[in-house]
Nucleic acid binder design. Structure first.
Lengths: 281, 281
DNA sequence: GGCAATATGAAATAATAATTCCAATCGATA
DNA sequence: TATCGATTGGAATTATTATTTCATATTGCC
């Protein structure tokens, strides 16, 4: 029929959004309905969909034709295909992504690779998280006066999000970053009544390790997020988590670490609320 | 027209497996096919399914009737319902986790919630990424002399990871952060030969928007990562991405944004290598 | 305000698909 | 091996559903 008919849902979606302005009223109505209720389009009959959207079946067909399909039926195929793909199990999806990324099909493959790496890491951590360690870490951090957050380089984004979240939750915290080279001084203020969250992955930033050493010698308890039991961070930590992040193109995903970090932060906030800032409510 | 007709897929599945032995040959053949290719049953017509399974349409109907349905159509409904539910299961799972976490069902629920939020976001973006925008953004960034990275508050972690990655790839970049309040000066150095990656989600940090405005007025092209077409960032951007991050306990996941950011960064690095840093290799 | 072009509604029609029916085949049992 | 009941294949029938058509309404333009 037409020249460039959208064959996959995403293209279709984009096309619809682009033309949204220039569509006649009823057609626009159906367009909006289609994007809002894609499942109904996939399963319904022309009559039932038209009724739900408040238009005539013929309008539905005109809508399809305007997009270049030769009828409602071919339009519906796209919506069905979408469901099929979406529905393929999580693992299959992941495998497909990896395969696509590996065969190196252009820039899209790079994107797929990062998504796959992130998904893998999340899958992984959700199986492996040690709940006892998790509870211990929460308890330790919940009773700290100030939580120090320590991470450099590739782990720094996690630290900055932790600091942001702690601030939002009104939990006193100090991000140890070296803008002015005053880290040593900041660290020297930490006392055993405080606590540290330290994050470092191989190759461990020497500064992180060194600072962790110093601070642990001051008797400040450390919760570490790192990548193996051989990590130099682990030896200084009261509690530590092993997080295996998949990497792609030389860059490690941070999804699992982020999820763990956020969970820790929010759980600490909750525990403090329960225990009561003022020792028992 | 039986008494206990299986209404959901799982019951149906069990019923089929139970009776498998006692079914006549062709009916068993269709039964096996149905369990192996549930998607085909959901979408196909009686004729097409029968053909794929190697039986007659009438057999398909007999199969349905034997299970207590009054015809193929009602059997098919169960298979369709399954697809619908499966499809929404991510969101539902997330909703369930949220509810669980709210009623205080332990810290593990919080962790699961963050993992689910991250997975949902990744799934979502992998379906929705607009490849044309993606290519356009890469092209735009690849020819920039310096890439400025602009993001505050909750988006800042992403910016810092982008800056880290760009640095690793030896791509000149400048993170616009206000440690010393010199942002305005830093921004004033940007020229139309440069480019900006700006990231902001609702509620948009006013500083980000303002700086994006200023920098776009200097003619510097902006690639924006934001959350909707109504975002104030979108109007200043040459290319923008809509990323819908699920949130949990008030904190937005960053997984999808991170994956996109990393993909952009690495793709830019790759494009530069191909095009040749020194104008054609 | 009148005219043409476009859009919409409703019903008729065509296409497609589900179901039924009947004859043919198969399989167990005496 | 003959016979009865169950099973199957294939075509006829019926139902449902998409599509077309045409009259009517709406919109934009002069």
């Amino acid at each position: 029929m037409d020249e460039r008919v959208p064959r996959d849902f995403e293209t279709l979606r984009t096309t619809i959004l682009e033309r949204r302005q220039s569509l006649p009223k009823r057609i626009a109505q159906i367009a909006a309905y289609a994007l809002d209720n894609p499942d109904d389009i996939a399963f319904g009959t022309a009559a039932s969909i038209a009724a739900s959207a408040g238009v005539q079946p013929s309008t539905l067909i005109r809508f399809a034709q305007q997009l270049g399909f030769d009828g409602f039926t071919s339009l519906q195929l796209v919506f069905r295909e979408r469901l099929r793909e979406r529905n393929s199990s999580y693992d299959e999806r992941l495998a497909a992504l990896r395969a696509k990324a590996e065969e190196g099909a252009g820039h899209r493959a790079i994107f797929d690779g990062f998504v796959a790496a992130a998904s893998t890491s999340l899958n992984d951590i959700s199986d492996r998280l040690n709940e006892d360690h998790f509870e211990a870490a929460i308890a330790l951090l919940a009773k700290a006066e100030t939580i120090y957050v320590l991470a450099k380089r590739r782990s720094y984004p996690v630290a900055s999000y932790i600091a942001y979240a702690l601030g939002k939750l009104k939990i006193r915290n100090q991000l140890i970053e070296s803008a002015a080279g005053l880290n040593a001084e900041i660290i020297s203020f930490a006392s055993p009544r405080d606590a540290v969250i330290a994050i470092s992955f191989s190759p461990y930033a020497p500064a992180t390790i060194e600072e962790a050493r110093v601070i642990s010698e001051q008797g400040v308890p450390i919760v570490a997020i790192t990548d193996s039991s051989f990590s130099p961070l682990a030896q200084f930590a009261k509690v530590w988590f092993e997080v295996a992040e998949a990497d792609f193109a030389g860059f490690r995903s941070l999804s699992a670490t982020m999820a763990l970090a956020m969970a820790l932060t929010v759980a600490v906030g909750e525990k403090r609320r329960d225990t009561g800032g003022k020792r028992k409510a």
